[in-house]
């Protein structure tokens, strides 16, 4: 019997025919990486292959690396395997990776989101025999509202705070969520950014992603110098001395986890808005159906119930263990 297209090792997902890993978490000679988030793009690989659009962020985050980039949709032969990258809709540049060996195709989803957000290259279903899907939000209680509704609510909140003489601080992951907010909110005042957010925003802006002008928060900037401003900062900045220095503010956290009151309370997330860069329950189910795959491996998230659910839907389903499990995996996006 021929070995499977992809296998699961203690370094991550491995392709024996092409002798490469996908999103490995330990140093390997050759890594194919789906996107620039730190639970996928790890330092220390001999070489990297990523999508054209993902490369600048990954370089910025990992420093000097040996890396090659490939346009979405273009095939490349690596040993006995044919690989190609396809948009995952998760964050700008994020990819699903398709691997075909001897006529059998597997797809690794990486992180993905099915709803177009106006910034990331929209998710494209890829036909395959076996699909390895994330399931961060793999329970039916997670159903997202359409993005325009959420953006409208954030805009309303921003306007109300501005009218009350307060700055609005949004806590959002500095790569992906932060820029999605920038692109999705129509400007109604100055937009300020935390240094970590501004760094990533500048990288994407240089790539040509359409992002509005922003101002990096420096010691001379406060609510008085920029009345009615929106501030975008990493979640860790909420409630910090960095935030209180700005003067009177309202804070809100932007995340899919905000959907559940119990989770919000358990993690002391405060108030905020439900907006996720991952697929919700209907999104996961639709995406899996669209691949036409008969075998599904699930990873990252509520893997046990989601695998069981897929079995009841007639799939041959399994779980891929990752190093990022439980709360660690839930905390990253």
């Amino acid at each position: 019997m021929a070995s499977p297209v992809l296998t699961f090792t203690d370094h991550g997902i491995f392709c024996p025919a092409g002798d490469f890993h996908i999103d490995p978490w330990r140093p390997v000679p050759r890594a194919l990486v789906t996107h620039g988030h730190s639970d996928h793009a790890r330092p220390g690989m001999g070489s990297y292959l990523v999508s054209d659009q993902a490369l600048p962020v990954i370089r910025r985050r990992l420093g000097p690396i040996t890396a090659d980039a490939i346009p979405f949709g273009q095939s490349r032969q690596i040993g006995g395997a044919t690989v190609s990258f396809h948009p995952a809709g998760h964050v700008p540049g994020s990819a699903q990776i398709k691997v075909t060996v001897a006529g059998e195709t597997w797809v690794v989803s990486g992180d993905y989101k099915t709803e177009p957000d106006g910034l990331a290259e929209p998710y494209e279903p890829v036909r395959c025999h076996t699909f390895i899907s994330e399931c961060t939000f793999g329970l039916p209680v997670f159903r997202w509202e359409p993005q325009p509704k959420v953006m409208a609510r954030i805009a309303e909140w921003w306007a109300a705070n501005a009218a009350a003489g307060k700055l609005s601080i949004l806590g959002a992951y500095s790569f992906g969520k932060a820029q999605r907010l920038l692109a999705g909110l129509s400007p109604q005042g100055p937009i300020l950014t935390h240094a970590a957010v501004e760094d990533m925003t500048q990288v994407l802006r240089d790539q040509g992603y359409p992002l509005p002008p922003t101002t990096r928060v420096t010691p001379d900037i406060t609510g008085r110098s920029h009345p009615g401003a929106l501030v975008i900062a990493p979640p860790s900045a909420l409630g910090s001395a960095w935030a209180s220095r700005l003067g009177p503010t309202e804070e809100a956290f932007v995340s899919g986890w905000m959907a559940v009151r119990g989770i919000r309370r358990r993690r002391a997330l405060g108030t905020g808005f439900v907006l996720s860069d991952h697929a919700d329950w209907p999104g996961l189910n639709d995406a899996i159906a669209a691949t036409g795959a008969e075998r599904i491996f699930v990873t990252h998230g509520y893997t046990t119930p989601f695998r069981r659910w897929l079995e009841t839907q007639g799939y041959d389903a399994g779980i891929v263990e990752t190093r990022f499990t439980g709360d660690d995996a839930e905390a990253v996006e």
Partner: peptide
């Protein structure tokens, strides 16, 4: 959804009223 998936969801949400509100189709 089957009963067991309802229970899995309830365990994560921690509140019956909220679990139901979140589970129902839009």
């Amino acid at each position: 959804i089957p009963d067991w998936l309802f229970e899995e969801s309830y365990a994560v949400v921690g509140d019956l009223a909220e679990t139901i509100a979140l589970l129902l189709p839009a």
